[in-house]
Design a binder for these strands. Sequence first.
RNA 1: GGGCGCAUAGCUCAGCGGGAGAGCACCGGCCUUACAAGCCGGGGGUCGUAGGUUCGAAACCUACUGCGCCCACCA
Length: 856
Amino acid sequence: MLYQRWVDAGYFTADVDSDKPPFTIVIPPPNVTSSLHIGHAFEHSLIDAVTRRKRMQGCETLWLPGMDHASIAVHALVEKQLADEGTDRREMGREAFVERVWQWKNEHGGKILGQMRRLGDGVDWTREAFTLDEQRSRAVQAMFKRLYDDGLIYRAERLVNWSPALRSGLSDAEVEHKEVEGELVSMRYGAADDSGPSIVVATTRVETMLGDTAVAVHPDDERYAAMVGTEIELPLTGRKIPIIADKHVDPKFGTGAVKVTPAHDPNDFEIGQRHNLPMPTIMDEQGRIADTGTEFDGLDRFEARVAIREALRAQGRIVAEKRPYLHSVGHSERGNEPIEPRLSLQWFLNVDGMAKAAGDAVRSGEVAINPPELAKRYFDWVDNLHDWCISRQLWWGHRIPVWYGPNGEMVCLGPDDEAPAGEGWRQDEDVLDTWFSSGLWPFATLGWPEQTPDLARFYPTSVLITGYDILFFWVIRMMMFGIYGMEQPPFRTIALHGMVRDQYGKKMSKSRGNTVDPLLWVDQYGADALRFTLLRGANPGADVPVNEEWVDGSRRFGTKLWNATRFALSNGATVADPVPAREELTDADRWILDRTDALVSEVDGQFENFEFAKLSEALYHFVWDEFCDWYLELAKVQIAEGEARAAATRPVLGHVLDVVLRLLHPLTPFITESLWTTLTGQESLVVADWPTATGAPADATAAARIDAVQRLVTEIRRFRSDQGIKPGQAVRAQLSGGFEVGISDHERAVRVLARLDEPGEAFAPTASIEVALPTGTMTVRIDTSGAIDVAAERKRLAKDLAAAQKELGQTQGKLDNPKFTSKAPAEVVAKIEARKQTAVADIDRITAALAALPQE
RNA sequence: GGGCGCAUAGCUCAGCGGGAGAGCACCGGCCUUACAAGCCGGGGGUCGUAGGUUCGAAACCUACUGCGCCCACCA
């Protein structure tokens, strides 16, 4: 349909000006496991708007669409399906598993693609990404090899966040800390009674005591000074462990003595390293107690916690228990189970130099972060980055390209290297963290490590538009890899948006039940309405609340635009004829043309700053308030005036609509496409030129006259409304005064807009309204054909009087203050003085009008 | 525990040193030939609290209160 036409019309193959810089944008991947999320619709709206404008400006645009995380998500989804079927993926083998994944992709890819299409984008996300898999693997392997050869990747036995359910290590970023109600158990080590030396330690994880290799106290803690250096018996095991002094211990917490389990606690690991303690691992990869030689071997960690506590209790060693004890425990982001610190052999990336460079790129201004306030967060993260554990013990993802030989050889292979043949060689079983491959996005998608023409032309990319929530995970990694691999940061600008929230600003979540399916809204209100709603709420870096009613409001805006265009077209609006010279135009024409020009520069400027909310608002008010409510009404009068006037008005209508539709196109592509092609008869708005402001000075006189007309008409309408005169009912009236501002030229318009007939014969005014205009007071004498509602009129005037008196009080107060008149800038004082004069005049006028009212 | 951010109309948010704004909601009147998915008019806020800076503060500073987010190894 319409969308397809754009593609056919050349949205992706349009001829471009070669002198314009190319515009490259990185597309964050959608999550395909759930139905399309509103957050993706939001992000897509922003990206598409920015790109469409660039294309209209003549830039060669390129999206770098991605599916990497999504691809990973599919793997996870398939694994879950397998689990539901009772199949253990470990037993089916890697090849069979991958086969299942492809099966899923083949079944669902088309559907997802269809959903994306309905949102009006032109990129075949799914297919793109899946065909990129192989190429991506080459990039990953090349990058790994390079880092490895540079000595930045190393293998080490470290404490990692271990997920027993996934049987894999996790990066810090994948761990979520949650407050949980646990228990704090204090237990006695050493002698169970007073027969010998003992020491009391406290823990929330009793089961780890089996792996204790020391008890630590603070070096300055006099209570234990005598015991430091001695050994004490570890209950249940019979092992003797030393009492050591380490300044990590907080003497004020608990008893001031800490059990040390180096293989199962990050702090203890450090203490263990400092004191050269043994580091026995007491749990297997599924979180079961193992290799302790005690009766607890084989127990799950949580069962063991209870069993060991009770065993200690039986020995009278439990001296205190606090339950519930609120403390923070790391949970796996995916499985939502408590992670277990575990000692294991992992691959690490030394990020010191890369992180520094990533920070400096922003510090130097080479890369801009929008909004700038969020740069602080970026620095917080980048300046405190620890070495990154890049290995995962998962079954999906890019395998670590390291091979081990039968005699202890270890070789790292690049993408073009042959895998070593021969008996006994095997590849490392681990795969790389998702973010390792995702971090290569900006150049891997352009063909790196090959030096492709695309890479030369489109790297570095122009802008990354993504959510602030992903700044740490993804952006920082792309920055590091880009600078390392391409010697240039991957983007010139990082534009961050917020999260889509519900109408009360609450986070959307399944448990809260406030999620929305954007496709339902698209079906019901149209893609344009959804996009406009999202864009209209998009202040840089801030969250975006959405609500179905607001989407409906956006749809009404589209309808308004539709009707306005329809009306203009039916009255001959055209772009075929040039807009007549200024001197042939009316004040209304000049005013709306000037306003249009101002709108162009405003919208254009806001686009540069990613101020989507502001530019949407400007367009909304221009279309609705200025164009529809005033100019179209004035144009009706002009068209009715005769053919000459009408002929001059038509190109103005056409021009204003032409510009507005172009400006709106990035926000609401569908409706503008339809209206614009009808208006102009041209092929497609997608490849039209972006408007540029003329920069010509606005006609201040015309603007002032139109402003006067608006104020006059509004005052008369207000009087009519207060007097209960039906809007459709014309009343006779006589206008006088205020002509020096050119109102006389517009009397006809005022009469039409305010429904005033000529006074005619036997004109007997029953009321008069005075409207203060910049250069004089306009008097409107009205024949209401009967007695006026004096009470209503008195109320109306009293309200105006009160406002004027308040204004007088405020301005007079300032002017009476000598400090104000002497210290404030002259123009401010002059302005206040002018306001005061206006207030005085208003009070005189209104007071007189009140006095003239008949007494009741 | 550390850091950051936000408190403005019933709701969601702009404004960020010189006249309190928008959308929606609300009240009243209109089927006025582009549009009732509309038009016209209107009501509504001591800008979180308390101090300070300034001729002048919603805006700048300080403290407090209440929310939100991020980071974090507290046994």
